[in-house]
Write a protein that binds this DNA or RNA. Sequence first.
RNA 1: AAACCGCAAGUGUGCAGUCGCUGUGUGGCAUAGUCCAUGCAGAGGAAAGUCCGAACUUCACAGGGCAGGGUGCCGGUCGAGAACCUCUGGUUCAAGCCCGGGGGCAGCGGUGCAAGCCGUCUGCCACAGAGAGUGCAACAGAAAGCGAACCGCCACGGGAAACCGCGGUAAGGGUGAAAAGGCGGUGUAAGAGACCACCAGACAUUCCAGUGAUGGGAUGUGCUAUGAAAACCUCCCCGAAGCAAGGCCAAAUAAGAACGCUCUUCCCCGUCGGGAAUAAGAGUUGCCCGCUCAAUUCAAAAGGGUAUCGCUCUGCUUGCAGAGCAGUGCCCUCGAGAGAGCUUUCGGGUCGGCCGCAUUAGAUAAAUGGCUGCAGCUUCGCCACUUGCUGGCGAUUCACAGAAUUCGGCUUACAGCUUCGGUUUCAGC
RNA 2: GCGGGUGUAACUCAGUUGGUAGAGUGUUUGCUUCCCAAGCAAAAUGUCGCGAGUUCGAAUCUCGUCACCCGCU
Length: 156
Amino acid sequence: MKISMLTGKHDNSLPRHEIARGKNNLSLLFAKGRRLKSGNLMMMSASVGSQRAGSGASVRVLFTVGKRLVPKAVMRNRIKRLMREAYRLEKPVLLELIAGMAPAEDGGKGVTFIAILYRGSREAVPSLPVFRTEMRTMLQSFAKTAARSASEGDER
RNA sequence: AAACCGCAAGUGUGCAGUCGCUGUGUGGCAUAGUCCAUGCAGAGGAAAGUCCGAACUUCACAGGGCAGGGUGCCGGUCGAGAACCUCUGGUUCAAGCCCGGGGGCAGCGGUGCAAGCCGUCUGCCACAGAGAGUGCAACAGAAAGCGAACCGCCACGGGAAACCGCGGUAAGGGUGAAAAGGCGGUGUAAGAGACCACCAGACAUUCCAGUGAUGGGAUGUGCUAUGAAAACCUCCCCGAAGCAAGGCCAAAUAAGAACGCUCUUCCCCGUCGGGAAUAAGAGUUGCCCGCUCAAUUCAAAAGGGUAUCGCUCUGCUUGCAGAGCAGUGCCCUCGAGAGAGCUUUCGGGUCGGCCGCAUUAGAUAAAUGGCUGCAGCUUCGCCACUUGCUGGCGAUUCACAGAAUUCGGCUUACAGCUUCGGUUUCAGC
RNA sequence: GCGGGUGUAACUCAGUUGGUAGAGUGUUUGCUUCCCAAGCAAAAUGUCGCGAGUUCGAAUCUCGUCACCCGCU
């Protein structure tokens, strides 16, 4: 954590333009996104503009909690804040992995959308370290599958 | 003093560091940005429920009816605000909110034989109309409302008697939530507002007090008319929808309109004037009448050729020819019309975006958070002695709950603390 | 932001001019059978979500409140 703090402040920031938004993009993401499941989280990802993820591409992320799963607005807000904090702290891992991949063929103009959904229980909210470890393993597996699809090439 | 209760009021953990988020001011730049630096601001008492109301916006607004809705006594210098006027101000309207008052019901106390009356008392009341109409009042009871006779009481008739018949009677019994003014007396065969005294209530007229609801008094009438309108209803009152309101900008595709061009087809139709009809669309913000607007159909839009019934005229061979008029049939061009395609233009409008959005929050998968330390609170454990609601150490927890146009009121949720009120217990005087 | 619906026995639902709260399934007991199932007979089971009000009387009428479900760009 200290090392990541020393490498640069911007790696840990999460300004608003890195938050995914727009109804069309998000409906596409939920309709065609690739899914990864973990204990408390589920991740969906899709690329827009380029055919696949690659180095140089920007990443936009979204955090959401279902109203039916967690009825209380305060609990929903707290879970989303914890997920956003976990992503913010684990973001350098993702950036290093993407930088190590083969560069995208279009020069990095595409955008990769990631949605992170909460699927845990509605009473007991997990603590921040739990979210961090789950987020780290999930981002690593995401980068692995993305790299494999990049090496296989795009057949679409 | 303690415990408990309270839809009683208030408060609703604090400070510092660090990593981040949103808005905004200022400054910087070989890079003018999705940049950097820095300052400031950044959830609540309920932000919730959406139960009332107001602002604001759009639509509507000659008028009438139906439906729907209304917590419908009075006053206020309480009220978010709004409208108007003669504009330093005034008037009016305005919530299921606040304060005060009036009236009613129940309780309590006093008084009286009783009915009743009185009250610096307590609690409750959606508090217009049941003397406009319709319907309802289970069971019980004779009878539950165009006024009633079961028992009882009394008179008369019959009978030896028990009793029967017939009539009178609402004082008594019984039923019921409710039984037709109350108590006492006169009176009577027995009774009855039949009559009288004292009360209660209704209606009409009138006087006084009060801003008013209303209260008090006088005279007269009739002696009485049940409850319920949160059953229908009558009277009175009430525009609707809502920031997903509304305004602006504006892709792609499809469809629409106008002008022009090209191609195909031709069943029906073929010149006045004035207008008529249709089924039914839109608006009238729940519906209808009425009103307004638009639409559709017919009417619109002309020339030629040919055949023929009829009429008129001319010619003569007197029954034929020619010309004209009108009608009818057929054909051609043309027109309106239908279909397809193309060019240009236009309007509506979807995705999306901006405004609406602020006066110390202003987002749009929705910012106000994470971590650390110290202090505070709750609970638990251990230790210490000065056994006290004491001190220390460690752990744990920190209620209800998250703005989305704004404001006022209501309701609901709520740990701990403070204050207030009530009940109980203990101690002292 | 606006609008609508539901709440009754363990479960699914009825219940209207307001007047003793019901059906089916299930449960229990008995009969039948060598035993079980099926069948027959009987029984038990209710703060009508909660709190007020109107009424002589409320599941029903009115108001408030709680929980759940649905619709509207």
